[in-house]
Simulated assay, not measured.
Amino acid sequence: MRPTEATAAEAQAAIAEEFSFFGDWSERYQYLIDLGRKLPPFPEEWKTEENRLQGCQSMVWIVPEGDAADLAFKAVSDSSIVSGLIYLALRVYSGRSAEEILATTPDYIADIGLAKHLSPTRSNGLAALLQFIQDTARRHLPA
């Protein structure tokens, strides 16, 4: 997935602004589901155990592409809400340099109140996704 905003910080600010339009969490959850539908197609042949994200109750597959200057991720889940969480994470981190990824704290999670409204299993899954992205960026840094 390629970012629409120039920087990770701009992506986080745009996410916070978009979520501020919704008054309650039922509307925010519906928006998350809608965002998950915007994930680009994920090839069936990539849905392997090797590409499966560990630490998620839902099935999540993620594939990194690129190098330290331009690290992109493709991912999908069998859960609608988790797909929305993936969409937000990729909007912030995918298509960025490894350095920018590592320098970006996922502030959007607190900014939109997501941390307070996710079940423990979804919180753990989101943490696993963000950890995978950070670990991948670390591995792509020049030695």
Results as ranks from 00 to 15, higher is better:
I15C: 13
A128P: 09
S97F: 10
P41F: 07
C56N: 02
R28I: 13
A127H: 07
R91D: 12
A98V: 05
D67T: 12
A11Y: 12
L53P: 13
A137Y: 09
T121M: 09
E65I: 01
R37D: 04
D24E: 14
L90R: 08
D107F: 05
R91E: 15
P41G: 11
Y93R: 07
A14F: 10
H140W: 03
E18A: 15
G84M: 02
H117C: 10
N51L: 01
E17Q: 13
L126T: 04
E45Q: 07
P64H: 08
V60I: 12
G113Y: 11
E100D: 13
F73I: 02
P43D: 15
Y31C: 05
A103C: 04
A98N: 04
F42L: 10
P106C: 10
G36D: 04
K47E: 05
L85C: 02
T136H: 01
M1P: 15
A128M: 00
E10K: 15
E17A: 09
F22C: 06
L71Y: 06
I133V: 12
E18Y: 07
V92C: 07
L71E: 14
E27S: 14
A16I: 12
L126D: 04
P142H: 13
L129H: 06
E45G: 00
G55W: 04
L53M: 05
L39V: 04
R122A: 04
K116D: 15
G84A: 01
T104G: 03
A115M: 08
D135Y: 00
E44K: 00
I101L: 09
L90M: 13
A11H: 12
D135M: 01
A98C: 09
A16V: 12
Y108R: 00
A98E: 06
L53Y: 03
E49T: 13
A69R: 10
I133R: 00
V63E: 00
A75N: 03
Q12A: 10
R138E: 09
L88R: 02
M59H: 07
V60S: 07
R37H: 13
G36M: 01
L118N: 03
S58C: 06
E100Y: 09
I101H: 10
Y29C: 03
M59Q: 13
E44T: 04
E45M: 00
Y87K: 05
E100G: 03
S26C: 04
L126E: 06
I112H: 11
D107G: 06
A127S: 14
F42Q: 14
S97T: 14
E99C: 02
P3W: 12
L130W: 00
Q54H: 07
S79T: 08
S83K: 06
F21C: 08
T48V: 11
D67L: 00
E50Y: 11
G55E: 12
E50I: 11
D107Y: 05
R96W: 08
R52N: 12
